[in-house]
Design a protein around this nucleic acid. Sequence first.
DNA 1: TCTTTATGTAAGTATTTGATTACATAAATA
DNA 2: TATTTATGTAATCAAATACTTACATAAAGA
Lengths: 110, 110
Amino acid sequence: MEKRRDVFQAIADPTRREILSLIAKKPLNLNSIAENFDMSRPAVSQHIKVLDESGLVVMRKKGRQRFCYIRPQKMKDVDQWLQQFRQLWEDRFDQLDQVLTNLKDQDDEE
Amino acid sequence: MEKRRDVFQAIADPTRREILSLIAKKPLNLNSIAENFDMSRPAVSQHIKVLDESGLVVMRKKGRQRFCYIRPQKMKDVDQWLQQFRQLWEDRFDQLDQVLTNLKDQDDEE
DNA sequence: TCTTTATGTAAGTATTTGATTACATAAATA
DNA sequence: TATTTATGTAATCAAATACTTACATAAAGA
């Protein structure tokens, strides 16, 4: 039985996000993915395992290779979570922006 | 100087995502946020600190209270990262879906 | 069959995370 | 001024994370 993983936890790691970007362009086998990173193959393999367990990718055996495919449907889950905030950033003149404008006087970052 | 945090790492934790959902509806002070969770106030405070450092929220002092506001612009960063995958889930009949359909025979999950 | 290639897996480890409790401080109120 | 309220901070700790190296296995090709 496969362990279930949280999608948000899966995309938290920058290496895993890079892997997703890579295979979004073209499905790749494990070694080809590992070549793109400055870390050991087992390390990359573990990242892919996390992605697999989260449902963000699926693996498919092809001879002695295992190819990694992105699962767009699961990526959509993240998009749907964002839905609740979308209105906020589309409303340019909401209260929060005013608050942030006022804050510029007492806060100097960014 | 404030430590910079990764937005994706910030939303990785379910408690922090809940906090964001809460204050998206209405800005709240720290204690009011903590009331919604079954954990100690300092624990919630640390979560909010992470959100603050990631830029997803801003704090504003009001008397002895500190209110927590969502920063929609930063939420948009996540949305923009998703952009690269959007085409994939909008194309219903791409190669990946065919692969997934074939996979149903050798894989029994979900 | 022997070798190479692609991958799996196990053991070990440093660091980070997510929580706790205890105590400190600063603003509002009696 | 004394107390309450809202919050900050420090010390501690267990568990999870993100790696490493070493070895095992399974499929393809010489």
